[in-house]
Amino acid sequence: MAVSIVGLILIFLFASSWPALQQQGFGFVTGSTWDSSQDPPVFQLGPMIWGSFLIAFNGVILAVPMAISIAYLIVFMFSSRMSKVATVLIDLLASTPSIVIGLWGFLVFAPVAAGWAELLNRYLGFLPFFKVDTENFLGSPFIAGWITAVMIVPIIASVTREIFSQMDRDLINAGLALGGGRASTFFKIILPTSGGGIVGGTLLGFGRALGETVAILFVLNLVFDFNWINVTRPEGGSVASMILSKFGEAGPKEIEALLAAGLVLFVITLLVNWLAAIIVDKAQPWRK
């Protein structure tokens, strides 16, 4: 059943976007022009694909330390009552709809994060990541990265928590008995043994970040121009958000191109998630 749904999605998207793919050729995923007024129209979504990856990287880099910290605190440090409260809070964050987080991000968080980006630019502007030549800091991949981080922290945290709580306690106790402290136990025993699971959980979060739509649409300035690594520049891209933003006023040709963009996004996230699912499955042999 599930197989047939995934298959159906692929077939329908492929069938209805075939004309656009055929016309645009390979440049569809590498070029950087999106213009429906030319004849024939040119649709290329290279910057959007790269932008999606940039934002997802950003989000993952921010989210992984937070998620591992939470999982560690819940499993190894908190008393059982505090662990329960923390688990409920994380689940609450996980079930907060993305449109609510987008609303909060747009009206409350974006101005704050823009301030942070300005500080980064002022003190670390010599790094290529934070070089900005405009006065505007709103709408950058940095802010979108934070928003996706808020959304993927619960995903990574819950996978990591499960891995941590199923760890072999004898290993940890042996480490402690040999005179290891918290830090050496954490870096030399806990992280190496649960590394696979954490990577899998991170990939799951990465896939979710790639597919995030409305929240990013509110906080990102979509520009069809490659922004390679400059996260605080107020220009970025995201395939999912681009689909939604162009959808309203698109003609039939452009709709085909948007469907093709959806197909590309789907294939990418399917690969990422499939990889993640295999890794997580391998890392949890007790589930068999």
Binding site: L8, L13, A15, S16, L204, F266, L270
Partner: peptide
């Protein structure tokens, strides 16, 4: 099947919308 279900849980919501759009509305 379990791996596929796990992978499906990461299906971008916009793609699910596009799928029904292309299958039913187009």
């Amino acid at each position: 099947i379990r791996v596929l279900i796990q992978a499906m849980s990461g299906l971008p919501s916009v793609v699910a919308g596009l799928f029904v759009y292309s299958a039913l509305i187009v």
